[in-house]
Every structure is written in structure tokens, then in C-alpha cells.
């Protein structure tokens, strides 16, 4: 059964200029440094990594809120970065976004109706009555009463605000939703309901999610396939079960063993990691992970490993594995 590739990202790079004095050389922050992956229609694809790995920047690039330094992002056959303004308008009805902080992602001065109708307005739905009808439909779809249309965001809890954000993202009928840590700011006891909602919507509407998070436990259960990122590069990619239970890349192994286990009887053998994440201003030579890697060999400091398919559907960037 062949899955249709909805979004294909190829060797995406984004370097930001680092502000320095007028006299010193231009330096670049390697926010995204060669990431490649495919998101299939109807699947949930996870992007995980620690701070500075570039996962949030990738989302911004795909939405074309910023321009890439190089690379492509092909959405249903067209390169997003080559799209004209007209085409971009269409793109915005195909891809939408959910944000991390429910409290700042909704304009506090707008009613729910305004917030959810805004994308509809942008798409040219002129009749106010039609818009209101759609708004009410959406509210109910996400589990909120349609009587809430004229209320303001501050009257709702974090979980409810996140539902409002989801309703807004659904308004235009997208095929892909970019989710930036949607449940990280929510209490443990209500995360489940939001994740269940997202899953239901995926089943009903055939949505694909690109799910970015630093919370490995959630991604484990929510995403079909996952890519682990380090310092702007993808280091491992594969079906979530495989990546988590049988990690191939040394960084993935360390990452998995670093998570505290909520079981006091479990024996914890942790692979310790030396030092700190290096600065993306001056990444190490060869494989970016080599200075901290417990298995590094001389080649690792000289040559950058390619991100290749080592098994069916499994990609790794590591000399030792290849």
C-alpha cells in the first residue's frame, strides 16, 4: 500500500545572521542545517529534539513565515519556496498551525467568533451568516458549546483555549496541521483529552500532523513516525516504535535513556552525556555529535555522515551504523 507523500522536505537549511559588531566577520547561526523527511497524507509525523535543534524553525519555514537559506519543501508536488503570492494564499488553506501557548495564541480582544472566523474571512467567505454557521460547527467539533461564540479567550481554561486554537486551524479545511508543542503547557490531567481530540479529527478528516515536541513520552504514543534532530540536522528517522525501542543513532540512545522513568522499581542504566549542547554558531567538524558521542571513531570528526536509509523506512546519519 503506497502512501502518498503530502509534504517532502529536502536538505532544508536556514542560517540566521548573528549580530556582531560592525568590524567582525559575519557569523551564522545554523538553525536548520540539512533536514530531509516526508510526511504522508493522514499520518502523524513527530519531530523531536532538544532546544536549539531547529524543529520550530522548520515549522516556520514550511509556513513560509521565513525564507530558507537553501533546500526545498514540496507540498503535493509544488515547491513551497517557489510559490507565487497567489499560490501561497492557496497554501494557507491547505496547511495551518496550532501553537504552544494557549494563553498568547489567541488575540485577547477578539471574541471566539472573530478568532475562528478570521481564516474564513481571509479565504474570502463573505457572507457573515455562513461564517457564523461554520464557526458554530467548528466549536462543536472541538467539543465546545456553540453558545460560546461571543465570549472572550480569558474566560476559558488552558485546555479550552487550545481547543479554540484547533478550531481556528480547522476552519479552512487543511490537509496538514503543523503542531508546535500543543500540549506542553497544559496540565497532565487534561493533555489526554486534547490528544484524543486530535486523533479523532485525524480519523474523521484525514488530516496529517507534523508534531513538534521536546516531550518524548507524548510523541511516543501520538506519532506514527518520528525524526530525531540534533543541532539542525536529522540524525534518525523511522516508525516511532522502532526509533524508541531500538534506537540506532548514539544520540537517540542517549536521549531515550535520559528520560526519568515513572517506576521506582525500574533499574535505570543511563548513558551519560558529556558536556553541553554546542553552539549552533560554530558547530563541530564532521558529525556534529562526535564531541559528546561515547562511540566516536576518528572518521566522525573528519567526515559528516549522510542521512541514509539503512533499513526499510529507517534513516540514520552515523558512520558506525552505516
Amino acid at each position: 500500500m503506497k502512501h502518498e507523500a503530502l509534504l517532502e522536505v529536502r536538505s532544508l537549511r536556514k542560517y540566521f545572521p548573528a549580530r556582531r559588531g560592525i568590524l567582525s566577520r559575519a557569523r551564522w547561526v545554523h538553525a536548520v542545517d540539512g533536514a530531509s523527511f516526508i510526511v504522508e497524507a493522514g499520518e502523524t509525523f513527530g519531530l523531536v529534539g532538544e532546544s536549539g535543534c531547529g524543529k520550530t524553525t522548520i515549522l516556520r519555514l514550511i509556513m513560509r513565515l521565513i525564507e530558507p537559506t537553501s533546500g526545498e519543501a514540496i507540498f503535493t508536488g509544488e515547491d513551497i519556496f517557489k510559490m507565487s503570492r497567489e499560490r501561497l494564499k492557496w497554501l494557507r488553506s491547505q496547511i495551518s498551525m496550532i501553537f504552544q501557548d494557549p494563553h498568547s495564541s489567541l488575540d485577547p480582544r477578539m471574541t471566539l467568533a472573530d478568532i475562528i472566523a478570521e481564516p474564513l474571512k481571509m479565504r474570502g467567505l463573505r457572507k457573515a451568516k455562513q461564517r457564523m454557521k461554520r464557526v458554530q460547527e467548528l466549536l462543536e467539533r472541538v467539543g465546545l458549546s456553540k453558545a460560546y461564540v461571543n465570549r472572550y479567550p480569558h474566560e476559558f481554561s488552558g485546555g479550552q483555549k487550545q481547543r479554540i486554537g484547533i478550531a481556528r486551524a480547522l476552519a479552512v479545511g487543511p490537509k496538514l496541521i503543523l503542531a508546535d508543542e500543543p500540549v506542553s503547557s497544559l496540565d497532565l490531567s487534561i493533555r489526554g483529552s486534547i490528544l484524543n481530540l486530535l486523533r479523532e479529527l485525524q480519523g474523521e478528516l484525514g488530516l496529517a500532523y507534523l508534531y513538534v515536541s521536546h516531550d518524548l513520552s507524548t510523541v511516543r504514543h501520538f506519532c506514527h513516525r518520528t525524526m530525531v534532530m540534533y543541532l539542525g540536522k536529522g540524525v534518525e528517522l523511522g516508525p516511532t516504535d522502532d526509533v524508541y525501542l531500538e534506537p540506532l543513532h548514539p544520540y537517540t540512545k542517549v536521549l531515550m535513556s535520559a528520560i526519568p522513568v515513572p517506576d521506582p522499581a525500574a533499574k535505570v542504566t543511563r548513558k551519560s552525556l558529556k558536556g553541553e549542547v554546542p553552539s549552533s554558531l560554530n558547530p563541530p567538524s564532521g558529525c556534529y555529535f562526535h564531541p559528546r558521542c561515547p562511540y566516536a571513531i576518528p572518521t566522525c570528526s573528519e567526515k559528516e555522515p549522510d542521512f541514509v536509509e539503512v533499513k526499510q523506512g529507517r534513516y540514520v546519519a552515523c558512520h558506525l551504523v552505516q
Binding site: 490531567s189 516504535d241 531515550m256
Partner: peptide
């Protein structure tokens, strides 16, 4: 029940406590 771990099998449905704090 609401706590997820990276081990074990994938959860079918996420557990959530109804209501609000």
C-alpha cells in the same frame, strides 16, 4: 494513568481526567 512513558506499547486512547482544576 495520565502519565505517559516511552516504554511499553502504544496507548490506544489517552487518559484524561474530566472537568477542571
Amino acid at each position: 494513568k495520565a502519565t505517559l512513558t516511552t516504554l511499553g506499547t502504544r496507548v490506544r486512547e489517552f487518559y484524561s481526567i474530566r472537568g477542571f482544576v
